[in-house]
């Protein structure tokens, strides 16, 4: 495990584009929360409405939800580090040099987990920073949303991984990642629920949506998702999807010509 991570580290250590991208993402995480925070202050001036509460305990959910919109960026990084291997044919060279196929793809899965941990770390730091600044105290109440946020980012990253492994080309994989996550999941889910089932049933169980409901919007979540499944069901399904993405990525990489 450590050896596989070390090899992945050597690949990204001097990869300038990777660090610039990651830096911008981290900066973006703070910025987008800062914008929401300022927006909340403006709203409060006019109406007593807590759209984006940045005080403990709600701050964990607020930041987890706001940050989830940026998950496409670590997802793009994930696609980039995998499709780079295909572009440079280094996935072949790694095998030729003596990696087993499983070791190679496991290295990528570990990288996905690392990116997810980094994402979660910065979400947590933002939550603590904003929470402490706004509340003038520190609290761990509501921190379960950080855990949900980790599950959510892992699911997004592994979804990006399976797209990269299946499609090999970064442009195509990134386009489909965005289009599916932002448009088609809603479209397909909405169509099935409204036109076929006539109730909210299918949409909640779709791969990205199931993790999105784990971290619902801090305002009106109960109204929008009132018939959503229980948290433990959502967690179980999220982990199931994560496992499925990993399973098929490993299978595809182990069985086919590289």
């Amino acid at each position: 495990m450590v050896k596989l991570l070390h090899i992945e580290w050597l690949k990204v250590k001097n990869y300038k584009a990777f660090w610039v991208f990651l830096g911008l993402y981290v900066l973006g995480l703070f910025s987008v929360n800062y914008i929401a925070y300022q927006f909340q202050i403006e709203v409060k001036k006019n109406v007593p409405l807590d759209l984006f509460p940045y005080s403990f305990p709600k701050v964990y959910q607020t930041i987890a939800w706001i940050s989830s919109w940026l998950l496409y960026f670590p997802g793009m990084l994930m696609i980039l580090i995998i499709s780079n291997e295909y572009t440079f044919k280094t996935h072949r060279q790694n095998i030729i040099d003596g990696s087993s196929r499983r070791e190679f793809i496991t290295g990528k899965i570990l990288m996905g987990l690392m990116l997810s941990l980094i994402t979660t770390l910065f979400v947590t730091l933002n939550a603590w920073g904003f929470g402490a600044a706004v509340s003038g105290k520190f609290s761990l109440e509501g921190i379960e949303f950080i855990g949900y946020s980790f599950v959510q980012s892992t699911c997004y990253l592994f979804f990006a991984m399976i797209l990269a492994v299946l499609l090999r080309k970064s442009g195509l994989a990134i386009t489909i990642f965005f289009m599916y996550g932002l448009i088609f999941e809603q479209l397909i889910g909405g169509f099935v629920d409204n036109k076929i089932l006539n109730k909210h049933y299918f949409f909640y169980y779709m791969p990205l949506e199931v993790t999105d409901i784990l971290v619902p919007m801090p305002f009106g979540g109960n109204m929008f998702f009132k018939d959503a499944p229980e948290t433990y069901v959502l967690l179980f399904l999220s982990l199931l999807y994560i496992s499925i993405f990993c399973f098929f990525a490993v299978r595809k990489f182990e069985k086919e010509d590289l």
Partner: peptide
Amino acid sequence: NFYHYLSAQKNLEI
């Protein structure tokens, strides 16, 4: 087959 953005030395280290 090498990582285009890395030097010869770094590529051989991998």
